[in-house]
């Protein structure tokens, strides 16, 4: 009896372990296809004390998705985000590794910033990147301030870096950029 019990427990544990391996689904195409997607991107810029718009439902597909974050990491270098933002530390562009977000730090708000561009130098990437690519980029950008799950981010940086790996990045609380300037 006890042996049988032990066996079935072991089997259950094995099944649970295997279940845990099923991490996520890789969406290579993006959904929906661009042709059928609504071209309009919600305007997520809102004045001072206004309430943030409702989150975009597409966020769930990209947030904490290892494959999307890895694609975003590749694009971050290829599209030369590094040129202004460096690897999160900022330079000509704003820093991305702190919690301050002038235009909102939610993934859909970051997508809107990439898509529409922002004053003082951030170019608009609409029609330069597909929506899927912008979501992937935003998913990666959020990892720079430690917003994403640690098991989804890459433990290895492609570039020479003196910061701790992303799996050890401290999570910065999100806040509007001007909060401490007042």
């Amino acid at each position: 009896m006890s042996l049988r019990f032990r066996n079935s427990t072991a089997l259950l544990a094995l099944a649970a372990a295997l279940w845990g391996c099923n991490r996520e689904e890789r969406q290579t195409r993006g959904k929906p296809l661009g042709e059928t997607a609504t071209a309009a991107m919600p305007d997520t810029v809102y004045p001072g004390t206004g309430n943030a718009p409702a989150p975009d439902p597409r966020a769930a597909q990209y947030e904490g998705n290892a494959s999307a974050i890895a694609q975003g990491q590749m694009l971050y270098n290829q599209m030369n985000c590094v040129g202004c933002h460096f690897h999160g530390g900022g330079g000509m562009g704003v820093a991305l590794m702190d919690g301050k977000w002038r235009y909102g730090g939610r993934i859909d708000q970051i997508v809107a910033s990439i898509d529409q561009g922002r004053p003082n130098g951030m170019p608009a990437w609409r029609h330069r990147l597909t929506e899927q690519q912008m979501w992937q980029l935003a998913a990666y950008v959020r990892t720079l301030s430690g917003q994403e799950r640690k098991d989804a981010v890459s433990a290895r940086a492609d570039e020479v870096s003196n910061t701790p790996p992303q799996t050890q990045t401290k999570r910065e609380p999100l806040m509007p950029a001007d909060s401490d300037e007042q």
């Binding site: 890789r26 290579t28 195409r29 993006g30 296809l33 661009g34 042709e35 590749m74 690519q133």
Partner: peptide
Amino acid sequence: ADPQSQKPGNHMPTIGLK
């Protein structure tokens, strides 16, 4: 038209061209 159905996972995105 759809590189992701020809070679799934490659880095060229499906744009969804008209």
